[in-house]
């Protein structure tokens, strides 16, 4: 009983920190999903390109990013960007250093691009070759064929796997706490340090993560159902 009351107590006491953490988790996740989707589709196009160098680059990129830990990638970007001369001004907004936030989003986007690329590529390749030929034979350009005929159909196959990837991103975003971004995991650490209670803050953020991911998975299921119905 006392554990439950301490749980409620801590939630109430640190509610603004926790809400702020949730906000940054969402900001990071949504940005990563958006950029990851754009770059992932481009990477998939490169991977299926006729030009050898593009194809080789995409292959090496995907294999390397899938074969190394996210944590390593986050540090590589965080320390690597300034070395490469990309200097992001350290403006602090809402308790979070912008340069760190941007490093975090960049690192996660680089990682997600590899996975989205594979999802998109397999989705596109699941579409019958006849669709491409049918479109080309009607005088469509290869670009139009890909973006207006093949990709919309592939989306139906891509969507469920992409939904999984979105949820994975939300969970993976907890790892950028290591470079000092005040998202949920970072807040849990902070609260633990202030309150000397290890369990409560972890349980609270676990619940918040779950509420976020579960809500999204419900929405995704709805959309999936709608997409299946609109097929005929």
């Amino acid at each position: 009983m006392s554990f439950l009351s301490s749980l409620i107590d801590i939630t109430y006491k640190y509610r603004f920190m926790l809400l702020n953490g949730a906000k940054f988790t969402l900001i990071v996740s949504i940005s990563t999903i958006m950029f990851g989707l754009i770059f992932g589709i481009l990477m998939a196009m490169m991977k299926m390109s006729k030009i050898f160098i593009l194809r080789a680059f995409a292959n090496v990129y995907v294999e390397f990013l899938r074969g190394t830990p996210v944590l390593v990638q986050i540090f590589l970007v965080f320390y690597g960007l300034p070395i490469m001369g990309v200097d992001i001004p350290s403006i602090v907004i809402g308790g979070v250093d912008m340069s760190r936030l941007i490093s975090g989003i960049v690192a996660l986007t680089i990682n997600t691009t590899a996975y989205v690329c594979e999802i998109v590529r397999s989705g596109i390749q699941s579409i019958d070759r006849g669709q491409t030929e049918g479109a080309l034979a009607l005088g469509m350009s290869p670009t139009r064929t890909m973006y207006c005929i093949v990709l919309p159909q592939a989306m139906k196959n891509i969507f469920p796997a992409m939904g999984n990837e979105f949820i994975t991103i939300i969970k993976t975003s907890s790892q950028i706490s290591v470079i000092g971004i005040a998202e949920l995991m970072y807040v849990a650490d902070t609260v633990r340090g202030i309150s000397f209670k290890p369990m409560e803050p972890l349980i609270i953020v676990a619940l918040i993560y779950f509420v976020i991911t579960f809500t999204i998975s419900l929405i995704l299921k709805r959309i999936e159902k709608f997409m299946r119905r609109s097929n005929r």
């Binding site: 019958d128 006849g130 669709q131 034979a137 005929i149």
Partner: peptide, 16 residues
């Protein structure tokens, strides 16, 4: 290809 049309064995209609 706009001037030379083609009809395929497997139709290749767009299902969507």
């Amino acid at each position: 290809r706009t001037e030379v049309g083609m009809v395929f064995q497997h139709f290749n209609l767009f299902p969507n």
